[in-house]
């Protein structure tokens, strides 16, 4: 084989594209580029202020170091409050998620109940925790109560959605066997459904505890308790070395939470 033919074959080969149709591929590319131009053009940006960002960033970072742990009492109080909010919300959420999850399982309940339960879950899931938090702050006032309620809403929708899916995917044999003994509906749930979904229910709840720990650190930014309020205050007071201390504490907390959650879910399996 001469060098020429090798060159010719390599030049011809190209990786197969993800989208087969050439027309569709090029249309998507062009539309994508048009979108970029349009979206960037439509943003109202104060470019002078943005360009000012680089020196500001270096200023902020130099002021962040070294992190200031001298106000550790304030820091630990906030962290403990966040943790308590996460625990309380997970447990209440776990309890409330059971009825909602059962109602959202298409194979257990009549269609109307199913539809209502599913729409409740969708509605609860849609809004970001911080939006829910601020609504609760307006209803119940500042403090951890609003934060706990926010995390409960997030936990209930998350856990019930996943257990509903799990119930829909479970094997019906066990349920039929229990029904055949003449068991009532509650007994069928207890002996037919519960044993099948219990491991996943616990796994999902532990995962949710981890997620709640993470979210409990931000709801405070809108006044719903926890370390977030302290963090947000340090930023508005340009108290950046304390901000870094709080951020490091949050990272450590999230890391421990994630580690615990992985370990516990591994154990359950």
């Amino acid at each position: 084989m001469s060098a020429e033919t090798t060159a010719a074959t390599t030049a011809q080969w190209s990786r197969p594209p993800l989208i087969k149709s050439t027309l569709l591929r090029h249309t998507i590319t062009v539309l994508g580029l048009l979108y970029l131009v349009w979206s960037i053009g439509s943003l109202e940006v104060n470019w002078e202020r943005v360009l000012d960002g680089l020196p500001r960033a270096s200023n902020i970072f130099t002021r962040m170091f070294p992190p200031d742990f001298s106000r550790w009492a304030l820091l630990t109080r906030g962290i403990i409050e966040s943790l308590e909010m996460a625990f309380a919300a997970t447990i209440v959420g776990m309890v409330l998620a059971i009825p909602l999850g059962l109602c959202a399982a298409g194979n257990l309940v009549p269609k109307p109940v199913y539809l209502v339960a599913r729409s409740i879950i969708v509605l609860l899931r849609t809004f970001h925790e911080v939006i829910v938090a601020i609504m609760f702050v307006k209803i119940f006032g500042f403090g951890p109560l609003a934060g706990v309620l926010t995390l409960i809403v997030a936990s209930v929708s998350f856990i019930s959605k996943l257990i509903a899916e799990d119930i829909e995917n479970m094997s019906s044999g066990q349920v039929e066997a229990i029904k055949a003994t003449g068991a009532s509906f509650p007994k069928m749930l207890l002996y037919g459904v519960a044993p099948q979904i219990l491991p996943r229910y616990l796994g999902v709840s532990i995962y949710r505890l981890d997620a709640n720990i993470r979210h409990s650190t931000v709801v405070g930014i809108v006044g719903a308790g926890g370390i977030g309020a302290t963090l947000s205050a340090t930023f508005s007071r340009y108290d950046y070395d304390f901000s870094l201390a709080i951020l490091l504490a949050i990272i450590a907390l999230v890391f421990i939470g994630e580690f615990f959650s992985t370990w516990a879910r591994e154990k359950l399996r």
């Binding site: 104060n46 202020r49 943005v50 000012d52 960002g53 902020i60 911080v130 930014i221």
Partner: peptide, 14 residues
């Protein structure tokens, strides 16, 4: 949201 706090301090609101 926490990243946003930081970047607002850097780039200004927007």
């Amino acid at each position: 949201v926490v990243w946003a706090l930081l970047f607002v301090a850097i780039f200004g609101p927007g």
